[in-house]
Design a protein around this nucleic acid. Structure first.
Lengths: 256, 256
DNA sequence: CTAATAGTGTCTTTAAGACATTATCTC
DNA sequence: GAGATAATGTCTTAAAGACACTATTAG
């Protein structure tokens, strides 16, 4: 590295952003048990309601509207690290799957100035969200079904961030092995199927028999030899697990 | 919007980034004709050699190393707009396909300070790059085959940006209709096949007969009725075009 | 026994894979 | 006619789709 060059560099010739934030679209799958009927399984998004006042007691921007959790990135961390830190501060959840999916930098998107947002989506198993920090007022943190999102007031350009997050998680669930982040390490065919059905109505995935057969032939899924569980039905069901491998299925071919 | 809140907001309580840059991985497909043999077709990446001195005459950081073209984003534009502007300034090329694929913000990635890089990849048909601006010294702008990239000195963390760009364009070419950006609006099966073969060796794509048959059944490709061209062979070949549609092919199913 | 999910048998239909053959044109 | 790419014919094999049927167990 050229030391002289570093010292001579004058960043003041360029205008610099007024802030760099990390936002998180936290998804979970909510399963609602019903008597004598299969459970209603839904993909849900966690939003927080912006407070009327800031911590300093001044009126808060976009107060009362719903927003993705997030906050300013510190100079000694990446936005991904900030997202993990903020999600833990907000919900007590840590160690979950998180992925960058977009960058939002349209001039005027935030009235406070030139503020960049690095957007991530997170996948959180439902049970982790239930054991949420007591410090959060339940009124201000809420899970929404995806259809509900059109009907509530959203802060800043978060309607756009959310629409993009949904598109991203949908394609990741169907085209990568991302579904594993909603599941225990060993799972039944019907558990995997339930995750996929939150984002698709493909008949080949909808049919129990077809899917139960298909899962055995998928190169990225292995049987957990000999293991079964009765957690999804009275009859014990075989357990499967994801293999560690990259999957690219070209749209131009049929097989793997 | 809450006006009082805007005025009371004090951005100085947070440290702000020292710069926001937009970088571009410019890909093109180079086709080298040979006598009595099929042409050698390769995916190539354009890089620029960093000057010894800045425009102000001071020593340049990372001078002499190869880097992705790019530069600082202005407050009145998005990084995507900046990428288009910079690519035109650099190569005279405009109106081409450009896509965000990553954000690079690791502390220390740029010795000049806390500098964020919003990375894009661009797809440029080869003939547009040939008519490059004369103002560029040919020595300092060069196309590299992907294998060559391991052997040349790269500036900053651009080795990482480039590796991610290659992964992204590879998966986009195979899993989306991105290949259309390397092709004329109407193309033969062998032209599409040549594009795909730059990023895959899938036997179903490699075989002429198999691919010529398969292209007729793809739901996102239509025949250009009655039209043919002889530009790829002595025998006139049918022309095809991409339909305007989203394609998601789940890894869990066989058909569309 | 009933109800529910798990899992198999089997037949039909469709598509993939392989390989040979024909078509069209330039040189 | 040689040589190149384009395109089809046809046979074999594998997989998808459909539907009936069996298995296991809680209540």
């Amino acid at each position: 590295m050229n030391k002289e060059a570093v010292e001579q560099y004058d960043s003041s010739v360029y205008r610099t952003p007024d802030g760099y934030t990390s936002d998180i679209a936290v998804f979970t799958i909510h399963s609602e048990k019903r008597e004598h009927k299969p459970p209603v399984v839904n993909l849900m998004l966690m939003l927080i309601r912006r407070a009327e006042q800031t911590a300093e007691g001044t009126p808060n921007i976009e107060a009362g509207k719903w927003a993705l959790p997030g906050g300013f990135v510190q100079p000694d961390e990446t936005a991904l690290e900030a997202a993990h830190r903020e999600l833990e501060e907000e919900t007590g959840v840590k160690g979950i799957h998180m992925k960058h999916y977009g960058m939002y930098d349209r001039p005027g998107r935030d009235p406070r100035g030139w503020i960049l947002s690095n957007a991530h989506y997170a996948i959180v198993p439902e049970d982790l969200l239930v054991s949420r920090k007591a410090s959060d007022d339940a009124e201000d943190v809420q899970l929404f079904r995806l259809e509900e999102l059109k009907t509530i007031p959203l802060a800043f350009d978060h309607a756009e961030l959310i629409a993009d997050a949904i598109r991203e998680i949908r394609s990741d669930l169907l085209q990568t092995t991302a579904a594993k982040n909603f599941l225990p390490s060993e799972f039944t065919y019907s558990e995997l199927q339930a995750v996929l059905l939150t984002v698709t109505d493909d008949p080949a995935i909808k049919s129990e028999q077809a899917f139960a057969r298909k899962i055995k032939t998928l190169p990225f899924i292995a049987e957990a030899e000999g293991k079964t569980t009765a957690r999804t039905s009275k009859k014990p069901a075989k357990l499967y697990k994801f293999k560690e491998m990259d999957v690219i299925k070209p749209i131009y071919t049929a097989r793997y």
